[in-house]
Design a binder for these strands. Structure first.
Length: 680
DNA sequence: ACGGCTGTCACT
DNA sequence: TAGTGACAG
């Protein structure tokens, strides 16, 4: 359910940039001969020509639509060029599109806070850039306005018949008597036009954009004139825009909530919403959503543009529709292995390129169960701490699947009362990695400190310091080491054939069932420290990049594990006497240089800030990734450190400023421009 | 037999 | 928390 956020200001300049039929453009850049031709991107060509997932504007003119099959598209447009999505490991591989999206983001992030909203959409907060332009070189004083900016669409601008549209736009941008908000938007027009031209020049991709005072309106506007155009929503046009806008066109109202508004409340346009008092909406839809609805009816949306250039999770999944459903455990395992391979690859790239580590692995599946009492039961999602390394991810994912399957099948091991074997089938599988946090980069002074005071012992092991600090200081709570307990659990050996349930799943009594299905969650509640496993996790990824002679490390892993456990216990017990310095000195699981050494050099070299690929907020996230409350660090430990380092640690530990979830505030700055009764 | 594959967010 | 569901493109 949507939630209302207070609006920080009603004169922000927010842009929403939306790539035009992005997948098509990516394919056309690969194959320039396709440019200008009606083109569509399809995935899985086997069945009815595959499903269309992107359609060029040329093809749309012929009536080709997304959600058509390739064959249908050929019927309405015989000359349509169908390009297949790349396939890897037997599944669609979207990495080319993801990477292309990153190219775009890195350009758009140049002028202000930038939020990657999806693979092909971005929000920008250009308020500061616009204010600066207004102060230094306001559009009102410019002699010429860029051609691309003049092609903008300005909602509410009176274009009488025969009038020169561009000339009207030029006048609007040049107006001296405009209010502050419109002048800011005028700056936004110029900035966004420039950014879009940059994108075109550097990536060959066109995009469309909306420019307004908040995200909701910007998003609405970006879709109004496509492709390759931009649309502006001046403050004064908001009411007129929303009045007749079909309610389902609003973001978040395209689903059940929108239907309910229509069916239950008779609301067909956003304007229709205005007649309902806030209390009525809250009564029907809850306090948060009620206020949110009341706000959006008035064009109020306080959502901030989050500075985030990178995704918060990675996933890899595949569906197995109908007859293709997976019916044996080995078949599931095979596909899980493929999915995990892809996921692992992406996690390693993320670690390599962005210095981020994912902490949670989740398995999702959909299943059907014929001949059973509750066949609509959902296959449960399961998650566990994520260990790096393809084989480990595969192993963990498979265990999650088995845990889910046991729960899904239920107490009787798949047998119904009539001792009839119940068939199950898996119709979709996906694995995802979440809780991705940056490896703290703030270790600069710590690294210097130890480099300075240590002997050869330390200097030869610089690269692992990063890991160690991360490992020992991070987030409390979570599991000790999932791998040690859960993975050594007895596993069921499945036969290759379909009837394994009948043949091999032992009949378990109630208590056993309970134990099995709750194993995963129980093991994570032991009060140990999640990041204790980090170096182990990482060693999995390191393995892949490491040369042979470095592998001696791996064989010491179990020893390292138990030492680690000891130390951790000690730390928890002897809180007052344990030294942070001891922690730093004692772990050196990776004596040779790893890929992390380059990160180390970068930060120590002091050139990090300029070369960082993080947005400002992500840099903050890096510091916050430690997630420690300063109070939780024993003062005697802190005192051992030089003040310089104490200060740095304190700076990472600053608590989040966060509003409680149910705090609903409303800005009336916009609302008082609307007439509805007492509310303003 | 399904739109497939991703991704985010809020609720409980 | 972990797990679920809604929504989007």
């Amino acid at each position: 359910m949507p939630v209302a956020k207070p609006e920080s200001s009603d004169s922000r300049v927010i842009a929403h940039v939306d790539m035009d039929c992005f997948y098509v453009q990516v394919e056309q850049r690969k194959q320039p001969q396709l440019r200008g031709l009606p083109t569509a991107v399809v995935q899985y060509n086997e069945w009815k020509g595959g499903a269309l997932i992107a359609v060029s504007y040329e093809a749309r003119k012929f009536g080709v639509k997304r959600s058509m099959r390739g064959e249908e598209a050929k019927e309405v447009c015989p000359q349509v060029q169908l390009v297949q999505v790349p396939v890897a490991r037997g599944k669609a591989d979207l990495s080319g599109y993801r990477n292309a999206g990153s190219e775009v983001v890195s350009i758009l992030a140049r002028r202000g806070r930038c939020e990657r909203a999806s693979i092909d959409e971005v929000y920008l907060d250009l308020t500061d850039a616009a204010e600066m332009m207004l102060a230094d070189n306001p559009p009102q004083g410019m002699e010429t306005i860029d051609e691309e900016a003049l092609k903008s669409h300005i909602l509410g601008l009176n274009n009488e018949d025969g009038s020169d549209v561009k000339e009207n736009v030029r006048k609007w941008i040049h107006r001296h008597n405009a209010d502050h908000r419109d002048k800011l938007l005028a700056c936004g027009i110029l900035i966004v036009a420039e950014l879009r031209m940059q994108v075109l020049k550097e990536t060959e991709f066109t995009c469309s954009a909306g420019i307004a005072h908040n995200k909701m309106l910007a998003k609405l506007a970006s879709g109004m004139n496509k492709p390759a155009q931009q649309t502006v929503v001046p403050f004064s046009s908001v009411k007129g825009l929303l009045d007749t806008l079909p309610i389902r066109k609003m973001k978040q109202l395209g689903g059940k909530l929108g239907i309910s508004l229509q069916m239950d409340m008779g609301v067909n346009t956003v304007g229709d919403l205005l007649q309902f008092p806030e209390e009525k909406l809250q009564e029907r839809y809850g306090i948060n959503t009620g206020t949110w609805l009341w706000n959006i009816a008035r064009g109020i949306s306080g959502e901030e543009v989050e500075g985030r250039l990178l995704p918060k999770s990675h996933g890899s999944g595949k569906t197995f529709p109908g007859p293709r459903a997976l019916k044996t455990v080995p078949a599931v395992q095979h596909w899980l292995n493929q999915l995990c391979e892809e996921l692992s690859e992406r996690l390693c790239s993320d670690l390599d390129q962005n210095k981020r580590i994912a902490h949670t692995l989740t398995l999702h599946a959909r299943a059907y169960k014929s001949s059973d009492t509750d066949s609509q039961k959902k296959f449960p999602s399961k998650s566990c701490p994520l260990r790096y390394g393809t084989a480990k991810i595969q192993e963990d994912a498979f265990n999650l699947f088995q845990a889910g399957l046991r729960e899904y099948i239920g107490f009787y091991g798949g047998k119904t009362q009539g001792s009839h074997c119940s068939g199950w089938g898996i119709t979709s599988l996906s694995v995802s990695a979440s809780k991705i946090v940056p490896i703290p980069s703030g270790t600069c002074s710590i690294a210097k400190y130890f480099q300075g005071q240590s002997t050869s012992h330390f200097s030869s092991m610089q690269s692992s310091d990063n890991l160690n600090t991360e490992a020992t200081l991070s987030l409390p709570s979570g599991s000790e080491c999932y791998s040690e307990v859960n993975l050594s659990e007895p596993k069921i050996d499945f036969p290759k054939e379909e009837s394994w349930i009948k043949d091999t799943v032992p009949d378990l009594d109630l208590q056993e069932q309970k134990d099995l299905s709750s194993t995963l969650s129980e093991k994570t509640q032991d009060g140990f420290i999640q990041e204790d496993i980090s170096p182990l996790l990482l060693s999995g990824c390191l393995e892949q990049n490491r040369s042979k002679q470095q592998q001696d490390l791996t064989k010491d892993e179990s020893q390292f594990k138990s030492e680690y456990k000891e130390r951790k216990g000690k730390r928890l017990k002897d809180k007052g006497t344990y030294s942070i310095i001891e922690l730093f000195k004692s772990y050196n699981p990776n004596p040779s240089g790893s890929f992390l050494s380059h990160e180390y050099n970068r930060t120590v070299g002091g050139t990090d800030a300029s070369s960082s690929s993080y947005s400002r907020d992500e840099e903050e996230g890096r510091r916050e990734a430690w997630g420690y409350n300063i109070d939780e660090i024993d003062s005697s430990v802190m005192e051992e450190l030089p003040t310089e380092i104490q200060d740095e640690i304190k700076s990472w530990m600053q608590p989040h400023k966060r509003r409680p979830n149910n705090m609903v505030k409303r800005s009336c700055t916009i609302s008082h421009y609307f007439s509805p009764s007492k509310k303003s």
